[in-house]
Nucleic acid binder design. Structure first.
Lengths: 244, 244
DNA sequence: ATAAAATAGTGTTATAAATACACTAATAAT
DNA sequence: ATTATTAGTGTATTTATAACACTATTTTAT
């Protein structure tokens, strides 16, 4: 690659711009949502778009993504992974733009912290009911992000990143059922999650009480293991997308 | 992302350069090789590097990758997939360079067509015995590419892209062993591949005869199934890398 | 004709993982 | 005491993977 750098005078040639786009997911009422911003200028004025911005000369791609994320949500220290780089020629009518897309997962209990801090419109959309038209090629990016998320949920601890700091095993099971679209066996799920040994007990009981029943046992992710260890929920199913 | 484009005068700000790097794999003597080019200038003069070059304003990323590939090997119409985008600030000492890395798989029977066409040194290296020092962060890119290839091998038909048009089951098994780095059971492999039902028999016998033994049964990939159907070779193993 | 070499498989068992479902236990409100 | 609720455990069945012994076919060399 850099092989050719000597032949070019970097300042003389017109070159593509680089942006990062961050597809920010969270759970609201146990349902997967994504953050979109509404455009106020040409092109795609009024359309909803994935938040993003130009990469500065002195920041890495991931740093740029974290900066964007914090600008939009005020949230730091979240799960972030690179999704794909979109570089078709005509994707932005103004100029040649290459976008490095990232996925961010924001915890259910912190997702409401800011959102919509500046003057422009920012909203969480359920992934089931997205706006019918998105700006640029953002519908494609979003579809790709959702596919990646869905497939990775099955063989990583990604789902934990979406849950609040403290949660019960049955809540975790509920997330899996939501995303996989099928009922799971309670006993087997307990065993699976215990065997993985990724959680630690929280001894404080949840304050909001139900009418009856044994109190909910809360757990939190063990910091030392959550990211390095895999939680493979299912081997069996076909998975066509595979985070290629 | 493009949200901020209006605020910037694109010509006035210094911005990162974008290159594509193409990690080109092939099989030579049943062993996985990768194509590297030797640098003739500072920095990393004399070091081997992954071939690549700048993205032109009027070509997509994939097109740029295909162009690089053809320049280096003379080969077209090969399997190509985006690997990852590397964008750390200091990775090129000359200027800020963001590299979109691709993986290309070149069939064993066409890989020798050109290579080393221009004056500069180009060589296939076995992935087991790579140069000890590569230019830039190319060792990291290469390691990532090999990891991706290895993990995708287990749940896709990718390996078939490396084989010649016609091949025997044992040759296919050999590829799997090469890339996975372990011996596989012959009987189980036969069963697995037959069960997948992705191959069709080739009735022409291979012309070059061995000293002894039953003639090699050749197969080819069934066009109607190869890409759509998955060939899941193994479920069980831990796979840390997982394609992005 | 027979032996050796190579490919192309099949059969069988052992181990491990996933699944289904019955069952026990604890706790708090009623 | 009863009941609803969470939180598990026990166990048998099914399925997948792995290990390895075994048979069969076709060719060349002797």
């Amino acid at each position: 690659m850099q092989e050719q750098a000597e032949r070019y005078d970097v300042t003389r040639y017109e070159r593509p711009s680089v942006t990062v786009d961050v597809v920010i997911f969270t759970l609201i009422h146990q349902e997967l949502h994504v953050l979109l911003v509404q455009r106020r200028n040409w092109p795609f004025e009024g359309c909803w778009a994935i938040p993003g911005g130009f990469v500065d000369m002195d920041e890495s791609l991931e740093w740029a993504a974290r900066r964007e994320l914090e600008e939009e949500t005020g949230v730091r220290d979240v799960y972030l992974e690179q999704l794909y780089t979109f570089g078709e020629v005509g994707r932005d009518p103004r100029t040649r733009v290459i976008s490095v897309a990232y996925i961010a997962l924001v915890r259910a209990d912190v997702q409401q912290i800011r959102v919509s801090e500046e003057s422009h419109a920012v909203r969480w959309f359920p992934v089931r009911t997205l706006p019918e038209q998105l700006a640029f090629d953002h519908a494609q990016i979003l579809a790709y992000a959702i596919g990646r998320l869905r497939s990775k949920l099955e063989y990583t601890t990604l789902a934990f990143q979406l849950l609040p700091e403290q949660f019960s095993i049955l809540e975790l099971k509920h997330i899996y059922e939501q995303i996989l679209g099928e009922k799971l066996d309670k006993g087997n799920f307990y065993r699976k999650i215990k065997e993985a040994d990724l959680l630690e007990e929280v001894h404080v009981v949840r304050e909001e009480r139900k009418a009856r029943g044994r109190p909910t046992q809360l757990w939190r992710v063990r910091r030392d293991r959550a990211l390095e260890k895999q939680f493979v929920f299912r081997w069996r199913e076909d998975r066509l997308e595979r985070g290629g």
